[in-house]
């Protein structure tokens, strides 16, 4: 396991690790204005590392994410947009969500419609 990136704000944190064929991005807290300054560069870097490392899957664990605002959703959308332009056989994206965080079901449904062939959502 290799840690690729880590962000720690008062009410938001994110870590990116590389494990086997996967990269795992875990976000916790509130993805709002404090997260916004970090998220776009973090996802750009993740995308580049995923291609370099040849991973087959990126897991985005948001089970402990209390909320994500629309500005941060835009960063996720832009990342999905870049990732779906990659040649077939590139990495897939799996969102790990919490059934207790009702907003996640609604937001992830919209994201999965945006990139149907790329995104899978798992709820626990």
């Amino acid at each position: 396991m290799t840690q690729l990136a880590s962000i720690m704000e008062a009410k938001f944190s994110a870590t990116v690790i590389h494990v086997g064929d996967d990269i795992i991005l875990e976000m916790t807290g509130n993805a709002d204005v404090a997260a916004k300054q970090h998220l776009a560069p973090l996802l750009q870097s993740l995308h580049e590392r995923a291609k370099q490392l040849g991973v087959t899957r990126v897991q985005v664990d948001i089970r402990k994410l209390a909320f994500m605002n629309s500005s941060c959703l835009k960063d996720l959308i832009s990342w999905l947009d870049r990732a779906r332009l990659e040649p077939a056989g590139s990495y897939r994206i799996v969102f790990l969500s919490s059934a207790n965080q009702h907003w996640q079901k609604r937001s992830l449904h919209a994201l999965s419609c945006f990139a149907r062939d790329l995104v899978t959502v798992e709820a626990s």
Binding site: S70, S71, L73, K74, I77, S78, A110, F114
Partner: peptide, 13 residues
């Protein structure tokens, strides 16, 4: 969402 990817400022979402 598609339009948001083209925006430099704000998401418009």
């Amino acid at each position: 969402m598609s339009r948001a990817t083209l925006r430099k400022d704000g998401s418009g979402l």
